[in-house]
Simulated scan of single mutants.
Amino acid sequence: MVQDAASGDVVAAGTSGEKKPGFFARIVIFFRQVIAELRKVVTPTRSELLKFTAVVLGFVVVMMALVYGLDYLFSWVTTVVFGVPA
């Protein structure tokens, strides 16, 4: 897909009559686009970073408790159904 410079529309490559860029030219274009996207990234402030970290750690603790609870429940159910091995 190529963006038409005049209208801004995205058109399929090769339909506008232009020659497809070479292998190394496409690599250079890719890295230029990566750098352009990285410039758009906004670094979080210290308070935002601490808040996001607390949310992630809280979520992990809740999920660990959920998995532990389910594991305990399933082991209790299997003990009740099949009994304790002699």
Rank of each mutant, 00 (worst) to 15 (best):
T78V: 13
L66I: 15
V77P: 05
T79E: 15
A65S: 11
I35H: 07
G69I: 07
F24Y: 12
F52W: 00
L70Q: 03
W76V: 11
P21R: 04
T45M: 07
V42D: 05
L57C: 03
G69H: 12
A65H: 10
V2I: 02
E18M: 04
E18V: 02
V2W: 01
R39P: 00
L50D: 07
V10C: 08
G22R: 10
A65W: 12
P44G: 03
R39D: 08
V61W: 07
V61M: 10
L38A: 04
A36G: 05
D71I: 08
R46T: 00
Q3P: 13
V41D: 05
I29L: 13
T45S: 15
M64S: 14
R32Y: 01
L57R: 10
A54V: 01
V67Q: 14
T43A: 04
K20N: 09
P44S: 02
E18P: 00
F31Q: 05
R39Q: 10
V62Q: 09
A6W: 12
M63L: 13
R46C: 00
A13H: 10
P21K: 04
L57M: 04
S7P: 09
L38D: 02
L66P: 08
A13C: 14
D71N: 15
V56M: 14
Q33H: 09
A36R: 08
A86C: 11
G22P: 11
K40V: 00
A86G: 15
G22E: 12
Y72R: 15
G14D: 05
E37Y: 06
V11A: 03
E48Y: 07
A65G: 15
G58I: 03
Q33C: 09
Q33S: 13
I29G: 06
M64Y: 14
L57Q: 11
